[in-house]
């Protein structure tokens, strides 16, 4: 028994959306959304190095290699920042291009043509997801679904087990420090989870969709709700909508599925930005209008 190809693709993307959506809200709220961009680019040399040293693309060593480089990336950014000579935004803008450049050179020099081609790491070939399968209990299922499902579960475990801690450090780092929860440690843990999510999703959906799924649905959700748990739920939902809509759009015009999914996520964000009942542009315009009118009547009454 096998899964239908389209279903596999949608399920893979949906699991990426779930895994990323669980982390995205915290990144956006902690204002480190761009660290996810940095980290997901910086894992490339880890993948290449594992391939060069061990000649394998098996998931486990690749994830370990990528996680190592994610940590290197975070530590390098912190080291540059701690000199006091480079601001944190500039540090991010220096470290991840350098690591990514190393990865690109490694790919073009030593690993070209052998599965590790660059395009698929950047914009991914989710269309190939159904071709790599494993058989579990007589049920043939795509490897990407198993892997991403595991990562999504791990992220779910991380977020639910440390829910209280993450909530405290996100909204009041000073308070959480005084009660003995280290914001820096939790931040690092979060970024490692981002890196593992990024690298697992890398080969099936490409770096850019990971970054999109980490930032855009969470930003859209932030426009729609004020409660953390609701924000996480909305983020994951927006991710799934993007996966479904993107797949449909991509098959219609025969373009990159990952790119189309990103585009649908962007459209969701644009809709939220315009039409969010409380923070949307329309709602704000209406509020401003009403306030002006109220003021005018109040002035007229006072006269």
């Amino acid at each position: 028994m096998t899964l239908n190809d389209d279903l596999t693709i949608i399920l893979t993307a949906g699991l990426v959306a779930t895994a990323a959506g669980l982390l995205g809200p915290f990144l956006v709220l902690r204002r480190i959304a761009l660290m996810s961009d940095a980290v997901s680019h910086a894992v490339l040399p880890g993948i290449v190095l594992v391939y060069l040293l061990l000649g394998t693309r098996a998931p486990l060593p690749v994830i370990v290699g990528a996680a190592v480089f994610a940590i290197i990336c975070v530590l390098a950014i912190e080291a540059l920042r701690s000199t006091g000579l480079v601001k944190s935004d500039a540090a991010i803008a220096l470290v991840f291009p350098a690591l990514f450049a190393l990865g690109v050179l490694g790919v073009t020099q030593y690993a070209s043509g052998v599965h590790l081609d660059l395009d698929s790491t950047i914009y991914g070939e989710i269309a190939f997801a159904p071709f790599q399968t494993v058989t579990i209990g007589g049920f043939e299922i795509a490897r990407s679904i198993i892997l991403l499902g595991a990562v999504a579960l791990a992220n779910l475990a991380l977020v639910t087990l440390l829910w209280k801690e993450y909530k405290a450090t996100t909204f009041d780092p000073e308070f959480s420090r005084t009660i003995g929860i280290s914001p820096a440690l939790l931040s690092r843990l979060l970024l490692i989870a981002v890196a593992i999510t990024a690298v697992t999703a890398f080969e099936s959906v490409g770096a850019i969709l990971v970054v999109t799924m980490l930032i855009v649905p969470a930003a859209a959700a932030y426009l729609l709700t004020d409660r953390l748990w609701a924000m996480v739920v909305v983020t994951v939902a927006v991710g799934w909508v993007s996966a479904l809509g993107g797949h449909a759009a991509a098959t219609a015009v025969d373009a990159s599925i990952a790119g189309a999914m990103g585009l649908v996520a962007a459209i969701c964000f644009a809709l939220a930005l315009v039409a969010s009942p409380r923070y949307g542009l329309l709602a704000r315009a209406v509020q401003r209008r009403r306030r002006r009118r109220d003021l005018r009547t109040a002035l007229a009454a006072g006269r």
């Binding site: 950047i122 999109t212 930032i215 932030y222 373009a255 790119g259």
Partner: peptide
């Protein structure tokens, strides 16, 4: 930071779609 991230991801997704198209 989120504004930068959203613009970056959206435009690049569009670019990838157009490139593959």
């Amino acid at each position: 930071d989120a504004a930068i991230g959203v613009v970056l991801a959206s435009f690049f997704s569009l670019g990838i779609v157009l490139l593959t198209y």
